[in-house]
Amino acid sequence: MLTEKKLAPARSMSLAQLASRFRELGIAAFILVLAALVSLRAPAFLSVDNFRDILLNISILVIVALGQMMVIITRGIDLSVSSMIGLTAMMVSSMLVLFPWLPMPAAILLGLALGATLGAFNGLIIAVGNVPPIIATLGTMSIYRGMVFFYSQGSWVNASDMPEGFRRLAKASPFGVPNLILFAVAVLLLVAFFLRLTRAGRDIYAVGSNPDAARFAGIRAQRVIFTVYVLSGLLAGLAGVLWASRFEAAQTNTAFGFELQTVAAPVVGGVNIFGGSGGVIGVVLGAFLLGVIENSLTLVKISPFWQLAAQGLLILLAVVFDAAVLRRMQKRGS
């Protein structure tokens, strides 16, 4: 905490914190209003089953968006997450087809290792090669996606080829709650712990809010930036394993286009794209809002042709609303 105080004037820091707190409250309120309106028109919305479905549908998003959040806090962006998910999903499921006796922890470890390696490559290009993150990950997005195709020569891994244990990995609920949700909660707790209670976690915020000052404070900015891309890759790797298990398939276009959602969730959840602020709660709320929007647009029978427009509009509204509030607060503050 000492370093943070040194880095930025106390007022702007607390303002940013206040803003993100407010954003979290605002989104929570928005979700409640939306939920109330939707349940008026479609009572099925409020059922336990539907709630479970929403959570299941956003679990993978939460895992990847948490990695994306750490990247965004350092003023970066990782557009290659979708391709990393596709590549690990394909490689891990292929290994399980070849060696069906592999225990599940080994499959998960393999996914984590593959993801971290791909993330490390991003990190090298960005932190050491000085390539702007958006360019580097735009490039690796195509490269990793091309590797998926090269790896499988276009064929897919289908449900009937996968060992039963692997298909149950994401779906079984030995503790009363589906494993997939437990994975997301575990990752959430770990990331929250990492960001708040470890030196390395706090350094991420320091580098994001002011890289020069962080350097003066003795933080190796380069190393921190390298680390966040490795972490983003690591989580994408885990997501790849879970994706293949949940959807019982690994295809050449698995998770294609998913990167936009992983950016939208943190941004809607108040993670500042200019770096330095944002927290896990915001990301979860952002992902939950996206999940509720998708779920309710289907339930209230909005024409499928209007769904995409409505989704885009709601994201814009969330961002504009937030900016307006932040402005008013800044005016009052000065």
């Binding site: 919305f45 089953d49 479905d53 959807f247 276009n253 998770a255 286009g257 779920n295 289907t298």
Partner: peptide, 20 residues
């Protein structure tokens, strides 16, 4: 409904149908 030939979208559209 339209799943866009996307596995994820088709899956959640199917879920939506059960509920509606």
């Amino acid at each position: 409904v339209y799943g866009d030939d996307d596995d994820t979208k088709s899956y959640s559209e199917a879920q939506g149908l059960f509920k509606k």
